[in-house]
Simulated scan of single mutants.
Amino acid sequence: MVPIHGLNGPGLDEVGLCAWIAQAEPGETLVYHRGFLAVDATSVVSRLSSEQQSSLQQVAAAAMRAADQGLVHLVQTRLGPDEFAYIAIARPRPGPPGAPLSMRLLEAA
């Protein structure tokens, strides 16, 4: 498991998430956020800067699009009170063999 994004860690942007999806083997996991996503992405209650909130919103939207395309499973696990790890799990590549993943990621954008 590779932790990437959280209140105290380095940020992951949408491009970084897509790059991970493109190279991840089925079953590999990535923690794309650690905290409380609904709170952290909402300007009224978030402790993140507006730039971090925007980045988090983009990463979360990209993760959801990738899940909709069948590229990842999205799960979460509770770490403590009001703290969760949001995890993407790489799935086997959909589509015919040789189908370019970059095209599927672009379609999901």
Rank of each mutant, 00 (worst) to 15 (best):
A38W: 11
L105D: 08
W20T: 04
V72A: 03
G95R: 07
A88M: 11
G70F: 12
I89A: 00
R104H: 12
G16W: 04
R91Y: 11
L17C: 03
P92H: 12
P96C: 02
E51N: 11
L12R: 02
L7C: 07
A61N: 13
V72P: 01
W20G: 03
S55R: 15
V72F: 05
G70W: 04
A38P: 01
G11C: 10
V2Y: 05
S55N: 11
G9A: 15
P26A: 13
R65S: 05
L7R: 15
A67T: 03
R93P: 03
Q58M: 08
P94E: 11
G70C: 07
R47F: 08
A41E: 03
R47G: 15
V44D: 09
R47I: 03
T77H: 04
R78F: 05
L7Y: 07
G80P: 08
G80K: 05
W20C: 06
A24Y: 04
A85M: 02
P100Y: 08
D13F: 04
A60Q: 07
S55P: 00
M64V: 13
G11D: 14
A90S: 10
D82N: 14
V31I: 13
L30V: 02
G70D: 07
V72G: 00
G11R: 07
A108M: 05
V44Q: 13
S54G: 13
P97T: 09
Q58A: 15
R93A: 14
A24S: 05
R104P: 00
H5Y: 14
G95M: 09
P26F: 10
L101Q: 00
A62F: 03
A88I: 12
P100C: 06
G70L: 04
P3M: 08
I4T: 01
D82V: 13
D13I: 00
G9N: 10
A66T: 02
Q76D: 09
H73C: 05
P10V: 09
L79C: 10
P10R: 15
E107M: 14
A24K: 01
H33F: 09
G98F: 10
P100T: 05
D82F: 14
